[in-house]
Amino acid sequence: MTNPIELQYQVEQFYFHEAELLDNRQYLEWLKLLDPDIQYVLPSRINAQVENRLRGSQSMIAVDAELEDKDSEGCPLREENIAHLTVRADRAYKVNSWAEHPPPRTRRLISNVRIKADNQGLLTCRNNFLLHYCRPGSRNFVYSGERQDCLSFNSDTINIRRRRIILDYADVNYPTVGLFF
């Protein structure tokens, strides 16, 4: 059993390293942080009907009620595996990926890292992010959200096994949500 303070430190350092790779556009290096069986999901966020019978309860205002997720009959914005993410990473190195050439400038702030459960080498973690994004000739955008991760944890390596991204948007007022969050 790892010391919880040490574990918190290791996980935070992992996230800072991941953000550094992405902001430095080292996408192929970033891919190496992923478990080959990664599930990467960005649920769609809707304006859900408030159910009258739930009034007064926590469920009435639950975030999950606003999400069209992987197992729903709705349509998540993204539900991807290593193949999708590899296509996205490779695209960045091509001169004709026009939306991002010249490349966008990004800066990721990762905070509020919470380790929820430690189950025999699998860590359930949540963390918050702010992502500044701008393309030359365009406006600046800030993405705000939470990442709900499952990390596979060995003594010297951490890999991302699952990532679920909760974006705090009402309407998608961004040029893309196809980024690496």
């Binding site: 914005l77 993204r78 695209r91 026009w98 991002e100 998608v172 196809g178």
Partner: peptide, 16 residues
């Protein structure tokens, strides 16, 4: 959704 819509890998080029 993989190629189109706000998260689509293809349509980000179109919207730009």
């Amino acid at each position: 959704s993989s190629f189109f819509g706000p998260g689509g890998i293809l349509e980000q080029e179109d919207s730009e």
